[in-house]
Each structure stands twice: as C-alpha cells, then as structure tokens.
C-alpha cells in the first residue's frame, strides 16, 4: 500500500516536473524573448520592445501566414476525407484484421519521418516511380514536374499526418453505439441521413481531435517543404527555422512561435467547448 502511494507521488511529480520544465518553462522563455531586443553581437538583450510583433505585420510575412494557413487547411481537408472512411472501415472489420491493419498503419512510424520524406522524393521525381508508372500505362505522355512544388508539399504532409487523423477517429468509431444506426434504419432513414444525422454528429469529438492534430503540425513540419517544396513553399515552421538559424533573430522567431501557440490555444478552446456540448447532449439522450 505504502509503496503504491510512493510510486504514485513519484510518477505524478515526475510528470508535473517534466511538463513544468519542458513545456511551461520553455514556453515562458519563448514568450519572454519575443518581447526583447537583439543586437548583432548578442542573441538577446534585456530591453523591452514590441517591434518583433510589429515586424510580423508586414505584407511579406502576412502572405506567408496566409499561405501557411491555406496549405494546412488543404492538408487537413484531404486527411479528413481520406481518414474518415478509412477509420470507419477499420472499425467495422473483425478483430483479427483490425489489429493487422492497425499494425500496418503504425509500422512506418518506426522509420524516421525524414527518411520517409526522402522516399516520397524518389516517388515524385521527374524520373521517379509515379511518372514511370503513369508513362508506362500511357496515362501521361510527358513526365510531370511534381517535385519542388506545393503539390509535393501537400502530398508529403498528408502522408505524414494521416495517422494522426485516423487514430482519434478510429477510437471514436469504436465507442460508437451501433444500435443507434440500426434504430435509424428501422425508422426508415436512408444512407445519407444515417451519415449526416447520426454518424457525423456522434463522431464530432474525433473529427475535432483529428483536425487539431493535423492542422498545427502541418504548419510547422519545416523539413517537408525544405525537402519537397520549391523556393516559395514556405510554412510558418520555415519562417521560425529561418529566423533562428539563418537570420539570427531569436526574438522574431519567438514571436512567430507565440502566435502559433495562440492559434493552437484558440483551437483547443473550441475543441473543449464542442466536446462539452456533445457530452451534454449525450447526457440528455
């Protein structure tokens, strides 16, 4: 008994300490630096300033923000329309196949995502597998120049982030009470009504969770546009990378990070509100 409670205190302290140091403290440092100045010789000097945020409001950077959001939205959209039916069918299979397919979904994660991005390069190249296949089948007659475009960036991001959409949706589908669908059918609901009135509302938490887990990383995975994108495939993550590593401007890099965190906070808030309402509805039912 005693041992058990010791262990619990230990692990709780560890978790809180870990989060406190590596999440909260790190974020506070970033937040602090984003209000400080810098000089050529010093990365950060203790002088309060708001210029870093003002600096972000120039047309050039606002354009990158806009582009980043639209790429992230496109990626999320494709992940959702691929991931939703995927998760549904996965949850419908019998146990044996389910775990096998789950394993196939997870296995690529054992390889570094960087290595997998290089594999995508090999597929999308002008002389790569995709063009070779389409040329052999006679579907196209000129190889497509896919690599180093935004299309390649979107393909890379969708591929890398799809499991983050599938897993929460799958968990959601698993918990779903099938009798509701049967009842709807008994009451004469067609296929469309069943999806629209039953399935979608009940899987809202899964959709929100999936969208969040895809939308934010797709703005920050800077190495994917670095590898697959061209001169203008810049995401917010690349902007942060650029400010920290090449421009030596940590304060501006921090300001961009803070804005990203604020966006994430806003989305978490919406998610929290949405699931609360959903749970209330369930209670009422």
């Amino acid at each position: 008994m005693k041992y058990d409670s010791h262990f619990r205190y230990f692990s709780l302290t560890l978790i809180w300490a870990w989060l406190g140091i590596f999440a909260l403290l790190a974020f506070l440092l970033v937040l602090g630096v984003s209000f400080l100045d810098h000089t050529q010789a010093h990365i950060v000097i203790p002088r309060l300033t708001f210029t870093n945020y003002q600096f972000l409001f120039q047309p050039m950077l606002l354009k990158i923000f806009g582009k980043s959001f639209s790429i992230a939205a496109t990626v999320t959209f494709f992940c959702l329309i691929i991931g939703y039916p995927f998760a549904y069918f996965l949850s419908q299979l019998d146990r044996h196949y389910k775990s096998l397919l789950m394993l196939f979904l997870i296995i690529p994660f054992w390889t570094s995502s960087l290595v997998r991005s290089y594999a995508i390069m090999a597929i999308l190249k002008t002389k790569g597998l995709l063009n070779l296949l389409l040329l052999t089948l006679g579907i196209i007659h000129q190889p497509m120049q896919l690599l180093f475009t935004n299309v390649a960036v979107i393909i890379g991001l969708v591929y890398n982030l799809l499991p983050f959409m599938v897993l929460p949706l799958y968990a959601n589908f698993e918990r779903l009470d099938r009798r509701l669908l049967e009842a709807a059918e008994d009451l004469g609901a067609g296929r469309f009504i069943k999806v629209y009135k039953i399935l979608l509302p009940l899987t809202k938490p899964g959709i929100y969770a999936g969208v969040m887990m895809v939308f934010l990383p797709s703005m920050t995975l800077f190495y994917i546009p670095d590898l697959l994108g061209g001169a203008r495939s810049l995401l917010l993550g690349n902007l942060i990378e650029n400010q920290f590593l090449f421009a030596n401007n940590w304060p501006v890099g921090s300001a961009v990070s803070v804005i990203l965190t604020a966006v994430m906070g806003g989305m978490l808030f919406i998610y929290w509100r949405a699931t609360q309402r959903h749970e209330r509805q369930q209670v009422l039912l």
Partner: peptide
C-alpha cells in the same frame, strides 16, 4: 524571384541530372 523554382547547393548534380 518570380522565375525561381528552387534554391539548392547540396544536391545539384542529382536534381539537374534527373531533370527535376
């Protein structure tokens, strides 16, 4: 810059040789 497709210095031979 509107004409520039890509900046790269580290993989020049394969990018140009493979017609990317």
């Amino acid at each position: 810059s509107a004409n520039i497709k890509l900046y790269n210095s580290s993989a020049v031979v394969s990018i140009v040789g493979d017609e990317d």
